[in-house]
Design a binder for these strands. Structure first.
Lengths: 134, 134
DNA sequence: GTACGTAGTACCCAAAAGGATACTGTAAAA
DNA sequence: TTTTACAGTATCCTTTTGGGTACTACGTAC
């Protein structure tokens, strides 16, 4: 439809940040995009990369990503079935975003040794504070 | 506790991307951070910037951001009450992330003229495709 | 003396998100 | 002949998230 690229986003009940987060929202979308950035994957390949996800959830998240146009789904009519998931060109434009998210996570988020709990580098952000000046 | 900055994140049931998203997750956190990046705001100032948020939700989201250590809350014991919210140094490290999210939102997310519905620039990403090669 | 602005809480409810489990059909491998 | 891998669905249930409304206290302005 060749919409004029009017930044109608300004009317969004929030801001461009929220707008983007809308598409990344969902428990597994971040990881999925992260892995697909590296290359096409089959359904069960993805599943193995996300040990904790259930089949149902993986399917759901992939369908949503597909509907957004960020990920493509290609079915090969063979048996056993072969379905490949890949980033679309539009999806690839998210690369800088995913990289920014990953970089921050690497620098500031830790798992407590015991379990699954996350924690921020709140202990004064010793080393990281340098990055602040840069 | 001066944890060695071991990247325990590698054990996270997802990846650094998910880890970061964990902290941005919540219907209003993105917008709040976006606005606080520009400077300290009082509770009702924020509220005016987010016409659609309810008092209860704004409070909740702010408390969560405070608990993460991304935002600080300063109470001035005067009457009427005065409470100021500001980014912490740790919160400020999110700036590149917020900027990346905002940039992508600006470029690729549109509101349909009618209403509140979001849509991606899926019509072939005409202009944006150039950015892909860069 | 009533209303207003400030920064919230408390309580209840609806909707959405996520999870557990079981089931499908085909072909090749064991 | 049973099992395995593949890529899912279907059904049900629990948890989380978000929203609506009413209430608070205090001091000032009208």
């Amino acid at each position: 439809m060749s919409l004029p690229r009017a930044k109608l986003v300004k009317n969004f009940p929030g801001c461009p940040v929220e707008a983007t987060l809308t598409y990344l929202d969902g428990k597994w979308k971040g990881v999925i995009l992260f892995h697909l950035m590296e290359g096409t994957l089959r359904f069960n390949e993805l599943r193995r990369k996300l040990p904790a996800v259930t089949q149902r959830m993986l399917t759901k998240q992939l369908r949503e990503l597909e509907e957004s146009g960020l990920v493509s789904r290609t079915v090969y009519p063979v048996v056993p079935p072969r379905v490949e998931y890949a980033m679309t060109p539009l999806g690839m434009t998210l690369k800088p975003v995913i990289q920014a998210l990953a970089a921050w996570g690497d620098d500031y988020v830790f798992c407590s040794p015991e379990g699954r709990e996350l924690r921020l580098a709140s202990d004064g952000l010793r080393a990281p504070v340098a990055a602040l000046k840069a």
